[in-house]
Design a binder for these strands. Structure first.
Length: 803
DNA sequence: AGCACGCCGACT
DNA sequence: GTCGGCGTGCTC
């Protein structure tokens, strides 16, 4: 009886949500669930994921094709990983292959391509009278095998049509190829294969073969030589080959680990845990040691020493022989966690981040797979690290929205980690100074055990926050974006040779540009947003499609010269600071100044080294790093995030204020914070100023209950997209109507309504929002309507924003 | 995703 | 009449 395998093909087509059946050839009898394989698929080769293997039943299996090869030398997926992928596919409504490829570095283990070569058939007759492009393409293909991409690059897109013609007439043959994208890299070392005496006597009788002589002499001296040594000695491959053939030297292959973090400092002193930390660990460690699933919400103020708790918990998991996954919102901004884990655990730690090359990531994954490394630290994708035996998942700053993947599959890292941990019997630590409202609610409901660390390790008090009512500023005749109290704070700080951080959630110079004669606002031609003026380069830029155009001198609509710039971006604040505090050295950090690879680090370390007095920037300056001399923080406008059309706007604002305030005064000196706002009475601002999470939570929870938002209902956001505005709207309306007809009473279908940014890059976007307490029914309705297979509809389960 | 099949406009 | 446009459907 033949063996057959159920295989999901790793292609990004939404309709491919079922498995395909393949024969397992005898020579691949070892294949089982979790293996990655190469399969023939529609005339080409594709990567496939085996989910099950069994005996073929009596049905006609003559039609089945055979698996061609295995990609790895063992299963890539453990049963738990397969189960998590199945859950993701089910919960977030993506194809199983889409969910499974999350676990694969570089999305796919193979790269397939179709290459074209000339068949050798007489071509002259065919080519006469054809367009010259046909002759050129044929000549190129005759010269050597080419891919379609190469040909269209060499000529133009017309090459595709020509190529099809040539293939149809049998002049050119197409052949499917596949190669592995990443594999273990080896280095070859050479050593003597005979004893020293034999080598010495051979060397004495060499006669002229100088390269061989150099190699043997070096081997007698060093014992073992690597590729660089051979290069230095000018020994070519032919030399080693002939000596190997003569039985004098032997090669050793060693797997290379590509790791740009290798050799980071180790051996730092670990302070003894504080009383609070000990209490938390007393709750945490037994779960880790007992290898049981339990989740903890570690609610600790900024500076309470959460990282040390993570480290101790990780040590316990390692002592229990299990592996650890540490998740951080953004690796570039959380260097300190990496440094401290490296200091404690050395090379047992691998760091995964998006800047790793595919090869580096593959090697990191291999080290985890084989158990040579036990701890992985990374951003959200590291939750898919192929650790065979995870014992602990840490999610630092669990409230961060970056944990939600914003493209399909739209998973939430926290939920994936909880799922993996539940299957593995592992502990989960969710760490935060300002937990997400849902998480805190879950903890209160007993889903997570709540652990609190309310005081700072160094005993320093939380900073004093002054809320400045910008309406009063205006009444007093002050129109600057920097209020009198903030100006005073900055002046004092700089005079005392201390440092300040200024936060503004808007880059660029002016947020919109308006003609005062006709009221025309400069807008992006492809997106429904206004253009932002950037003083650098004197250009207008679209922050959605990145399009850029020179700033006009006269209004393009009416020709008027009265063009005014409104709104405030980081560039404008930078300019105002220069006028207000000419002595202060200001450095700006936003997307525009951090383009380069290590630009973040460069700016931050220059600031930390005291080469600047004021760090001015967007979101990214509010996070993670702690710089000792910073005693003052200014929030230019708390309102930008407060009045976004989103039910999480208040939460976003509160988080921001708390984080920003957390930057001030961590080195012992008391910190001072100024928050500017037009809504000083808003509870998010008030609670943020008092560092009062409980007050914010109670108020916010009441609002959510009132409006039926999470955690009191689940949300699903559908985005209907299309180039044709009318068609897209009709599709959206039909979909909403179909859902209303089908969904139970516990469900509310809102919309369709135009997305807050109704058009991006010429694609119209409409939203439909589903609020439900019966997610299973909602999911069933989506499936019955086939929404998950539609390419014009994006489904976002548990969206982090509804914009 | 690719690639084939299939049914309508502009050229020899 | 052919070539070629890209809409629809399929890939074990």
């Amino acid at each position: 009886m033949a063996l057959i395998a159920e295989v999901f093909v790793n292609l990004p087509a939404r309709r491919l949500n079922h498995s395909f059946t393949y024969l397992v050839p005898d020579e691949l009898g070892q294949i089982g669930p979790g293996w990655r394989v190469l399969v023939p698929f529609g005339g080409r080769k594709a990567e496939g994921f085996v989910v099950s293997v069994g005996e073929a039943d009596a049905a006609a299996d003559a039609e089945l094709k055979s698996i061609m090869d295995a990609i790895d030398d063992g299963p890539w997926f453990t049963d738990q990983m397969l189960a998590v992928a199945a859950w993701i596919s089910e919960y977030y409504l993506c194809t199983p292959a889409e969910a499974m490829r999350l676990f694969v570095p570089g999305k796919a283990g193979i790269k397939s391509a179709t290459v074209y070569r000339a068949t050798g058939l007489a071509a002259e007759e065919f080519l006469t009278g054809r367009p010259p492009l046909a002759g050129k393409v044929y000549a190129a293909v005759s010269a050597g095998p080419r891919t379609l991409a190469q040909l269209t690059g060499e000529f133009d897109s017309g090459a595709a049509a020509v190529l099809r013609l040539l293939v149809r007439h049998g002049l050119v043959a197409a052949k499917a190829t596949a190669r592995r994208t990443a594999r273990t890299q080896y280095r070859t070392y050479w050593r003597l294969a005979v004893d020293e005496a034999a080598a010495t006597s051979f060397l004495a009788n060499l006669k002229g073969r100088q390269a061989q002589g150099r190699l043997l002499a070096a081997l007698l001296a060093d014992g073992r030589l690597g590729p660089e040594d051979l290069k230095r000695l000018k020994v070519a491959a032919t030399t080693t080959k002939s000596l190997e053939a003569a039985g004098l030297v032997a090669a050793e292959r060693e797997a290379v680990v590509r790791d740009s973090y290798a050799g980071a400092a180790t051996g730092a002193l670990i302070p003894a845990p504080t009383e609070e930390q000990r209490a938390v660990l007393a709750a945490l460690l037994p779960a880790v040691q007992a290898k049981r699933f339990e989740s903890f919400l570690l609610h600790g103020v900024t500076g309470s020493g959460k990282t040390q708790v993570y480290i101790e918990a990780a040590a316990a998991a390692r002592a229990a022989g299990r592996q650890v996954v540490v998740l951080v919102p953004e690796i570039a901004l959380t260097g300190q966690i990496v440094t401290r884990f490296k200091a404690r655990f050395g090379d047992d730690v691998v760091v995964a981040h998006s800047k790793l090359s595919v090869g580096e990531r593959y090697d990191a994954w291999q080290r985890l797979r084989s158990g040579t490394a036990g701890i992985v630290i990374g951003a959200r994708s590291a939750v898919f690290a192929p650790v065979p035996d995870p014992g602990l998942f840490v999610i630092d700053e669990e409230q961060e929205f970056t944990y939600k993947q914003e493209e399909s599959p739209r998973y939430h890292t926290r939920e994936v980690a909880l799922k993996r941990a539940a299957l593995a019997g592992a502990a989960v630590v969710l760490g935060s100074a300002t937990p997400a409202v849902e998480t805190y609610h879950d903890a209160c409901a007993g889903r997570h055990r709540l652990l609190a660390m309310p005081s700072r390790v160094d005993g320093s008090p939380l900073p004093v926050v002054q809320v400045v009512d910008m309406r009063e500023e205006l009444k007093a005749g002050r129109r600057s974006v920097i209020s009198a109290p903030l100006r005073e704070l900055l002046t004092e700080t700089v005079d005392r040779r201390e440092q300040a951080i200024l936060f503004l959630n808007r880059r660029g110079y002016a947020t919109f540009v308006l003609c005062r004669d006709c009221g025309e606002v400069m807008r992006c031609g492809r997106c429904a947003v206004s253009l932002v003026y950037h003083a650098a380069g004197n250009v207008l830029r679209c922050h959605y499609c990145q399009a850029c155009q020179p700033a006009p001198d006269v209004c393009p609509a009416c020709g008027s010269r009265y063009i005014r710039y409104f709104g405030t971006g980081t560039q404008k604040v930078e300019e105002e600071l220069a006028a207000l505090l000419p002595a202060a050295r200001v450095v700006r950090m936003d997307q525009d100044t951090t383009g380069g690879k290590m630009a973040h680090d460069r700016i931050l370390s220059a600031f930390a080294a005291g080469r600047y007095d004021i760090l001015l920037g967007t979101q990214m300056v509010a996070k993670g790093h702690d710089i000792k001399q910073v005693t003052a923080v200014g929030v230019i406008s708390a309102d930008t995030s407060l009045y976004l059309p989103d039910f999480r706007a208040a939460e976003r604002t509160f988080m921001l204020l708390t984080q920003a305030a957390g930057r001030a005064g961590r080195g012992g000196a008391p910190g001072r914070v100024v928050v500017q706002t037009y809504s000083p009475e808003h509870y998010a601002v008030q609670a943020g100023a008092r560092h009062d999470y409980a007050a914010f939570y109670e108020e916010e929870l009441a609002c959510r209950r009132e409006l039926g938002y999470p955690p009191f209902a689940s949300l699903v956001k559908l985005t209907v997209q299309g180039e044709d505005e009318v068609k897209a709207r009709r599709q959206a309306e039909e979909t909403a109507a179909a859902l209303r007809a089908r969904l139970p009473d516990k469900t509310m279908v809102v919309g369709p309504f135009a997305a807050p940014i109704a058009r991006i890059s010429d694609i119209y976007r409409l939203h439909i929002l589903i609020k439900t307490t019966d997610t299973a029914a909602a999911r069933a309705a989506f499936k019955a309507l086939g929404l998950e297979k539609r390419s014009d509809i994006a489904i976002d389960v548990d969206p982090v924003n509804v914009m």
